[in-house]
């Protein structure tokens, strides 16, 4: 997994306040109003879970709460849809 900070945030987009998430134990900067999946992508995290049978990695696919591919654990609750959840300060996120 590449855990680099990328420059994917659009410079002139309206952003809320800067917040910090904990992603797999590491701090991750995000902004209020961003969905979890966007915050993770901006951090360079694209593989979010492992498919049970084939063991393949999966990431964002539909981005609108339909495909269930972007499931992550949020604040200890497994199988939350990253694309449908707004990031909040201090949120604990676990991938894979």
């Amino acid at each position: 997994m590449n855990n680099r900070d990328t420059d994917l945030r659009i410079a002139w987009a309206n952003r809320g306040q800067k917040i910090t998430l904990q992603v797999d134990g590491n701090p991750c900067t995000a902004y209020e109003g961003e969905t979890v999946h966007a915050a993770l992508l901006a951090k360079g995290i694209r593989a979010l879970r492992i498919a049970g049978k084939t063991g393949e990695l999966r990431g964002i696919f539909c981005g609108m709460g339909i495909c269930y591919e972007c499931r992550v654990t949020i604040n200890g609750v497994p199988d939350q849809l990253a694309c449908m959840t707004l990031a909040t300060d201090g949120m604990q996120i676990e991938t894979r």
Partner: peptide
């Protein structure tokens, strides 16, 4: 759609 939503809702490029 996912690529578009990323930009429109979160201001993040795919």
């Amino acid at each position: 759609g996912a690529a578009q939503i990323l930009m429109k809702s979160a201001g993040v490029l795919p």
